[in-house]
Every structure is written in C-alpha cells, then in structure tokens.
Write a protein that binds this DNA or RNA. Structure first.
Length: 432
RNA sequence: UCCAGCGUGGCUCAAUCGGCAGAGCGUCCGGCUGUUAACCGGAUGGUUGGGGGUUCGAGUCCCUCCGCUGGAGCCA
C-alpha cells in the first residue's frame, strides 16, 4: 500500500492508500468515529464505521486523543460533503504515539499570550498551516522574480561593523577579543558593493532592529528582501518595485488561492494589484493629510495613522516619493530639481498594512557623500570601504528593502505580523 | 522609554454598592451511524499574578512589584 500525502489524495479515488500524520480532532457517535487527520500537506477526514470494521479497530479509534500520531490505511472515497472533496474509509490504524496530556490548543478563541507561549504547538493548527504555506509561496515567488530577471543572489553578512542607517538600533555583541560586532539591520551597503561587481543583485534574510517597538507592524527579528541595481535611477527603481510586488501577488493568487480562501482573505482586492501603482510626492501627501484634518506639516514624519489615511485613498499600494532630505538616511541622492528632497520612495500597502518597501537612489559622487556623512555627524573612518565604492568606477545606483512579514500579513489579511513568521521575536518574547 | 488597558479553574470570560467564587468550552464517564467549533446527560476542576495595607469582611478599594496586550516615538 502506497504512502500518499493528503494533498494528493484526490488523484487516488478508489485506491487503498496509507496516510502518515496526526489526529487533529475526533468526533464520535456511538457507532461511527470521524477522525480529522492532517499530515503537513492538508487535512482529510477518516471514517471508522462500527458496522464495517473489526471491533478492535473501532476500539483503537475510540482511544485516540487529539494530536495522536498515527498511520492510517484505508480507501479514498469521493465525498461531496467533505471540504477537500474526498474522505478516507479507514481499514487500519497504526498508533505511533498517544499523548498522556491533553493538547492545550483545543478551541478557536485562545488569547494571544497563551498562543504565543505555545507557538511550537500553535503551528499545527489549520490557520497557521495556511499562513505558513502562503509565506513559503511568497518567498519562493520573490526568488523567482529576481532569478527570471538575471539578478544574482548575494547573501549579505549578519555580523557587521557599526555602519548602517542608525547605530542606535543595533544589537551589539562581543566578537571574540576583536571588539564589538552588530547584528545586521540591513544588507544594503554590502549590496551596493556587490552590484558594482554583478550588476543586478538581491538578498533575502533576517535583519535585526533593537527598537522597543510594540505594534502590529513590528518584529525585532524580521526577514527582508533587498535589491540593488547599478545604473538604475529613481524611476527605474520604482518600476522594479511595482513589478516585484505585482508579480508576487499574482503568483500567490495562482499558486496559493486555496490557502487565502481558507484564511477568508478577500482575493478580489488582491486581483487589483497590477502596475502602475499610484504615486504621490511627500509634499502632496502632506497637503492631502492636511485636507483630511491632520495637523502634520512639511518636514514632519508620516506616522502610522497618517500612512493608513494616505493608503485608504487608493486600492493599490501607493508610492510616496521625494521626502525631505533631513528626515532620511545620509546616503540618499538629492533631487536635482529640488535639493531639499531626496530621490527616495516608500511603498504603502493598502488596507492599513503600512510601509512594505523603503527605497532610494544612492549618492554616487564621493564628494557629495563625504559631505553628507559629515552633515549627519557620522564617523568618516567607519565608512572607508563604502567610500571606496565611490572612488573606483562609481555609477548611479538604486535599491530598496521589502519587509517579508508585512507583505505576508497584507496578502493573508492578518491583524499582526507575529503570525506571518514561524517563530516571532517580539519585544520581550523570545520563547519558544 | 512613555501612555493606556488587562491579570479569576487547563482555556475564554462573569461576579451588582466591598457581603456564600460562577458559566461556557476542554478533560473524564455514559448516550447517539454523517459529524464539521457536533449534540444530549453526568462528573472533575480555584492560594482570584506576588507582596503589603484599609476594613467586621477584599476578586472588588489603596500602595508596590511582576507579567501580558495595544499604541507613541522609530522603522520594513
């Protein structure tokens, strides 16, 4: 008898198969047991009828508890009433293990503190299964997007020196007797180096921010995809971002629509995500906010509520570009038409999911960069290799970073990014 | 770090003005041949987050500590 994964059962109607998995729930009548089974690929119901199986098998089924690990053998039967279209008429159950304790997650309305404490078991529930499958598809499609376009994967280091956007938010650790090392909060500077060697490059990996942020959009450890392209300027950069985001959404609709439906995501809203995306300058965004009753003025940050207010004007992600120079990082290229703003953009996801991309054209002239480093009060010496990139064969280049969990949260319609990653590191929570 | 809220059986919550600590779910036992958060009957289950105080009497009021949640700042 062949071992078949539940996701493939529809191709085996009428056959006797073996399913290796777990019992996620059991409902019983006096003479029939309904075994809700999962095996990591999907869910199926096993039927054990007293009148058609040996008494011993019926009694084994009776003793099974939630999250018993079992190998079930039986006949695949088409069944219109079943959610997946098929059921398993059980002929044999091989018990691997029956827990002694009751499974703690046994109803739909546990509190978030309890669930996070039991994340290692929470992962087994249907909702988390669907979310993590979508996350997998999203990451897969991000890689596909770049690979199809001739980008080269460049893995940037996680241990770094102190350079980056802002040294205050870095996790610090001892690097033997060498001094301090820091966990990367971006791989951008390394990608800038790599794009001068390989043209079009990207990375995808974990980043760390030592910010005491406690909101639905923040994790301490989160995954970021960054891209950097030599000779790309502001417009090329925005176009690449639009293509990436719409590609990912399209691929998820193609490959993971079942999961989105199971998560009760309104996929109609995702079907609208095709380029071009609406654009607004920072300056116009401030005017829009003022018209909507915010007291924000030019030079102020655009906070969470303001982001949501801007995003709700559009049914696609909106590109907010050309922020004031003083608000943004030192390496961003000033706009030749208005040196008070820089050639950067943030992409805000619809439905209040906030910033999913931060991007800019980078300063490529050495003198300008040196000037900006000084202006920001940064230590020129720590930027020695970064300045080298402007010494040897410097060219205009641009790039961006996309927060994977925020994209997952948006596409899945989650209320909080902590469900968008297998084991979330949030403020003060590192176990399990 | 700051602001706000919450902490009561395994879980989610209730408890009137300060006056006998309760319900639903889970679990266990019994019943039921089509259940999808099954249903019906019964049983089990408590140092009300810790410490201190006020009071004849505190889950409830006060102080303090701890934990959690959301938000601000900052960011993807």
């Amino acid at each position: 008898m062949d071992w078949i994964y539940i996701a493939q059962l529809r191709k085996h109607v009428g056959e006797d198969v073996e399913v290796r998995g777990w019992l996620r729930r059991k409902r019983s009548s006096g003479k029939i047991h309904f075994l809700s089974l999962r095996d990591g690929t999907g869910f199926v119901q096993g039927i054990v009828e007293k009148s058609s199986v040996p008494e011993e098998l019926f009694n084994i089924a009776k003793k099974l508890k939630m999250e018993s690990s079992i190998i079930v053998r039986g006949t695949v039967k088409r069944e219109e009433r079943a959610p997946g279209g098929v059921e398993l008429l059980v002929k044999d159950i091989e018990v691997i293990s029956i827990p002694n304790k009751e499974f703690p997650i046994n109803k739909p309305d546990h509190g978030i503190d309890f669930l996070m404490d039991h994340r290692h078991l929470w992962l087994r529930t249907q909702r988390q299964f669907h979310i993590l499958r979508v996350r997998h598809e999203i990451i897969k499609s991000i890689r596909e997007f770049y690979n199809e376009r001739g980008f080269v994967l460049v893995d940037t280091p996680i241990f770094t020196g102190s350079i980056g956007e802002s040294a205050g938010n870095l996790f610090e650790l001892d690097y033997f007797d060498y001094g301090k090392a820091y966990l990367a909060q971006t791989g951008q500077l390394y990608l800038e180096a790599a794009c001068m060697a390989l043209g079009k490059v990207y990375n995808l990996g974990p980043t760390f921010r030592a910010e005491k942020s406690k909101t639905r959009r923040h994790l301490i450890e989160f995954w970021m995809n960054e891209a950097e392209v030599a000779y790309y300027q502001h417009e090329d950069n925005i176009k690449l971002q639009e293509e990436l985001v719409s590609y990912v959404v399209r691929k998820i609709l193609e490959n993971a629509e079942d999961h989105l439906r199971a998560l009760k995501r309104d996929t109609k809203r995702l079907e609208k995500i095709v380029p071009p995306f609406p654009r607004i300058t920072y300056t116009d965004a401030i005017k829009l906010l003022q018209k909507k009753g915010f007291s924000t003025s030019w030079g102020d940050d655009i906070g969470g509520d303001e982001e949501t207010a801007i995003a709700e004007e559009f049914d696609k992600p909106v590109v907010v570009e050309k922020y004031p120079r003083k608000m943004k990082a030192f390496y961003m290229q000033p706009d030749p038409e208005n040196p008070d703003v820089v050639l950067c953009d943030d992409m805000l996801a619809p439905e209040g999911y906030g910033e999913i991309i931060g991007a800019s054209e980078r300063i490529w002239q050495k003198e300008v960069l040196v000037e900006r480093i000084k202006e920001f009060g940064l230590d020129l010496d720590t930027y020695d290799w970064y300045l080298d990139l402007r010494e040897f064969g410097t060219v205009p280049h641009s790039g961006f970073g996309m927060g994977v969990e925020r994209v997952v949260a948006w596409i899945c319609g989650l209320e909080h990014v902590r469900e968008a990653i297998p084991f979330a590191r949030t403020l003060y929570r590192i176990h399990p």
